[in-house]
Amino acid sequence: MQLEIRNLAKLYDEKRGLAPTSFDVGKGELIAIVGHNGAGKSTLLKMLASWILPDGGSVKFDGIDLKNRTAVVRKVGFIPEVPNLFDFFSVEYNLKLFAALSQTPFQRVEEILNEFNLIPFRKSKVQALSKGLKQRVNIGRALLSNPSVLLLDEPTSGLDFEMTRETYRLMSAMHGDGKTIIFTSHRPEEIKNLATRIMLLHEGKLIFDGSPEEYFRSESHEKLYAW
């Protein structure tokens, strides 16, 4: 298993956070975590990305404990809902800074700029870019060190139809390259042809974990709209 998650928990209050949760993730899976706001989706992803510390439990990436952050970050790329880039600086500066800190050759920056159609914007300041373009830079940055696992928190939040389709196309392409992807979404219908596995969280508890076919046949899907 590429990811082993055991009793991972973070409780803000009775209904917010994540109750002790365990699951495994195999290499090459594309997992959609669905649920309402406050269900614990982002909390789960942020714990996997070391953004927040869990109250308990353990996470192992390829057998390496998450507590060993500097070793794990090379294996994981996290793309938060709101792009977090140095706004004052250009796209190229941002990518080169993170490449240098990750000890990634600058050749990889050129590859990312090409791959994500960012060449025309390489000298543009991030603050001048649209949200869709910022998200593309954000995804590109996460891929600099070629991580085997990608975590995307609400990757299509605030994007128009065209950009949402583009983001899903990118995710599909990355999955095609053999990457393991876990992302969160409010809209299961949108990702039923994308995900290979769906997990449903409700009030911090994992209440469904299965294939998209099983999910859309299950009561859980119906309940999601009733809650």
Binding site: A49, R74, P80, L85
Partner: peptide
């Protein structure tokens, strides 16, 4: 506030 520190901590810096 802008989550830049967390972004930097996504690299192997200490």
């Amino acid at each position: 506030e802008k989550k830049l520190l967390l972004a930097l901590l996504q690299t192997p810096i200490h």
